[in-house]
């Protein structure tokens, strides 16, 4: 479990996170939503250690980030997989080399063992025969899948995804969503997804955290988000006519 307690972060005197507290459970797809500038990305970067919080505690299965040495931090990070918004694949390396990279750095395995693992995770994300291609030769959806494959190749305990669906067509976005959910359940990973995509939120958001101006405004599941009366959540999630009508229909049906 990841426990976040009273997380504060500011940049040049401007507070971005103002005391966010929450927990993330194993095998659950957690989603962070909110408007641009609400602090989602900063929150995610604090979780993975790319930003150091000004105060507050992040506890990874009993390990408080403030009490870890640099070496322990690095070891903890080896248990983290991250899917970046733009994929962040190493463009001078092939798909195979990209996925093999964490193994080369941290696993004491022979080349054939590493190759087997690479092929296994590539198959897991429904990609085959792309081993020798460079990231630039792949479509956006394929790059995201390679990025997921790289994130899970070390069997991480924690998976973080920053806008995994941005720039993807609806079909590919659904494929990526389902893939993340399947992997989360299959490997019992703690998954935290930062998203703007309301389809994803409704589809796979087992726990949703709504951030507004650096504060946790609301927390609940994708079922609860339909019936919430929280004005800020309703205005954000149901800002489109389509979603508003879907919500009205759902509420009518459940009454």
């Amino acid at each position: 479990m990841i426990e976040v307690t009273d997380l504060y972060k500011e940049f040049k005197g401007i507070p971005v996170l103002k005391g966010v507290s929450t927990t993330f459970e194993k095998g659950v797809t957690n989603m962070i939503i909110g408007q641009s500038g609400s602090g989602k990305t900063v929150f995610l970067k604090c979780l993975v250690g790319l930003h150091i919080p000004d105060s507050g505690i992040i506890c990874f299965d009993g390990r408080k980030h403030t009490e870890l040495t640099i070496k322990e931090h690095r070891l903890l990070r080896q248990e983290i997989g991250m899917v970046f918004q733009g994929g962040a694949l190493y463009d001078s390396l092939t798909v195979e080399e990209n996925i093999m990279f964490p193994l080369k750095m941290f696993a004491d395995q022979s080349f054939s063992e590493m190759l087997d693992r690479v092929n296994f995770v590539l198959k897991r994300v429904n990609l085959e025969d792309v081993n020798n291609k460079f990231p630039a030769e792949l479509s956006g959806g394929m790059q995201k899948r390679v990025s997921i494959a790289r994130a899970i190749v070390m069997n991480p305990k924690y998976l973080f995804c920053d806008e995994p669906n941005s720039g993807l067509d609806p079909n590919t976005a659904t494929v990526i969503d389902n893939l993340i959910k399947e992997i989360t359940e299959e490997y019992q990973i703690i998954t935290v997804i930062n998203s703007h995509d309301m389809n994803s939120v409704m589809e796979i958001g087992e726990k949703i955290i709504f951030l507004k101006d650096g504060v946790k405004e609301w927390e609940g599941s994708n079922k609860e988000i339909f019936i919430t009366e929280n004005e800020a959540v309703v205005n954000f999630v149901y800002s489109s006519n389509l979603f508003r009508k879907v919500r009205e229909a759902y509420l009518k049906e459940t009454k």
Partner: peptide, 17 residues
Amino acid sequence: TMRVTEQIDALEVMGIN
């Protein structure tokens, strides 16, 4: 370029200096 395309962040998240 590695910095602006988050490739350096990816290294750091993996626990690489």
